[in-house]
Design a protein around this nucleic acid. Structure first.
Lengths: 115, 115
DNA sequence: TCAATATATGAATAACTGTTCATATATTAA
DNA sequence: TTAATATATGAACAGTTATTCATATATTGA
């Protein structure tokens, strides 16, 4: 049970338990990351870095079927990662805010890969 | 097919397609986010913000069984999110680098929630 | 109103994933 | 070496999810 570092580790564990976010907040953060953790959805985000696009053009940029892309866009929109704007017959999608790009770039920095 | 914004959107789509990262790189980034997109694993990360801890204390801080926590630690370690260091009979886990906390905080900024 | 275009969506299936249970490995103390 | 403690792991099951297919909704132009 004890690990020999009672003094340091036990204190950290107590602080951690005391400061653990509520289940609900953890779930919200998890949803954010889950929404950007699928290759098909990540590609959509990489594409939207280059500007607002309608679904047809997103499909052109990332590949796959219109239906699959539409399903993924719904998930990204529900998570607040992208926003949609009707523009006549089409719907233009774009990244919700600058944090999205920042998170992507931070992950790539972590990986030591340039995207 | 055309969406009325051929000029702007088509250009963005072309740039997006041309600059789309390789499948392999997309998969690596996806793995990073997937590893931190599960509530049980997120709790471990929130806990480790307070310092290095052995498995027993992580279990104490986040709840659940030792087996489940161990499985999750393996996933986090494989993704390069946490690192492990044997210390006698126990194994001390800690966050891999400062980027981990930065990504978490950025996500929370996005959510307008303080953790 | 009708036809055409753009996007969304429900259902079904296949693949994936988290947890549990039982057990294995590794380290330390006796 | 043996017992005790700490951690890891394989298998199985349950729950989740991405994609496909077919179809529905919404907008525009004639």
């Amino acid at each position: 049970m004890a690990c020999g570092h009672e003094e340091e580790h036990a204190l950290a564990a107590q602080r951690a338990a005391r400061n653990m976010p509520a289940e609900e907040d953890v779930a919200r953060v998890a949803e954010i990351f889950k929404s950007i953790s699928e290759p098909s959805r990540l590609k959509i985000l990489f594409a939207l870095r280059h500007g607002e696009m309608c679904v047809y053009h997103i499909v052109e940029a990332v590949g796959g079927t219109q239906s699959a892309v539409s399903h993924q866009l719904r998930i990204l929109k529900a998570a607040g990662i992208v926003k949609a704007r009707r523009d006549g017959q089409t719907i233009a999608y774009s990244l919700a805010d600058e944090h999205v790009v920042a998170v992507l770039e931070l992950a790539c920095t972590h990986l030591h890969c340039k995207i």
